[in-house]
Design a protein around this nucleic acid. Sequence first.
DNA 1: TTACACCTTAGAGTTAGGTCCAAGGTCAAT
DNA 2: ATTGACCTTGGACCTAACTCTAAGGTGTAA
Lengths: 138, 138
Amino acid sequence: MYQIGELAKKLSVTTDTLRYYEKHGLLKPSARSATGYRLYNDSNLRSLQFIISAKKCGFTLKDIQELLSIQVDKGSHSCHDVKSFTEHKLQQVDEKISELIAIQSSLKKLIQACDGGDKSAANCSILTTLEDDDGITH
Amino acid sequence: MYQIGELAKKLSVTTDTLRYYEKHGLLKPSARSATGYRLYNDSNLRSLQFIISAKKCGFTLKDIQELLSIQVDKGSHSCHDVKSFTEHKLQQVDEKISELIAIQSSLKKLIQACDGGDKSAANCSILTTLEDDDGITH
DNA sequence: TTACACCTTAGAGTTAGGTCCAAGGTCAAT
DNA sequence: ATTGACCTTGGACCTAACTCTAAGGTGTAA
């Protein structure tokens, strides 16, 4: 069990942020001490890691709350709903990955050009390298 | 050449957003009409596509401005600076991709569980599937 | 020449996601 | 028993990225 300050330090966020996440339904501490201190367990820690990762990838806190709320309950009558919701989220993730891969390949080319590649005049910015061949396709 | 409204409609943003991007140095229209109307060309359109893509992946407008400002000028004395800056940005992109791939694999497992996979009791949420095997490693 | 859909600027307002008090309680060490 | 580093709540404040409003100019079709 961690106090709020320990957890915050572990994952480099502030205690204010943790209280904010609690208030907005993203991360509820597993318990409270007799005197009202928030107490977090390892499951809370993993949730927070997930929140931080997903945020870095451009998901809103609302998106993240939805992702965290996905629960597949075998035989549940809501299985179909959960599945189509999850498929929709997967599609968003796939899109982000495609876009990042295009940017990644552009940046790699720019670095190569900097190493003395012979196309440096033609490929001199992220936009020109994106246009090159395997850029973002829409 | 497009007027602001045409470009906005083409890429599903508002005209206010385009004016905002101009004011903040992200997207300057290639010309103005005699009467002061903004005129955008295809290069402006590609810049805007890039801005939208990068934003979706969690880059701030400041990040995006920096990405757009990368210019490799062969033989430039600043080549080294540009290279290390670009390498740093590439590292950020690589991280985002890793995190998205972990989330992607989780979502795929959840969808499979929904299809009647036999591990649905054990793997019932995004967090449990992340913990499974190939989750995010820190 | 007037209607209507465009465009201009400047500046105010909004939302998400924190961040920072203030006033006070808790806990371990001196 | 008091110091100092923790914790509590409530509410004000802040920044990024829009979004809206007001007051007015432009362009073209009836």
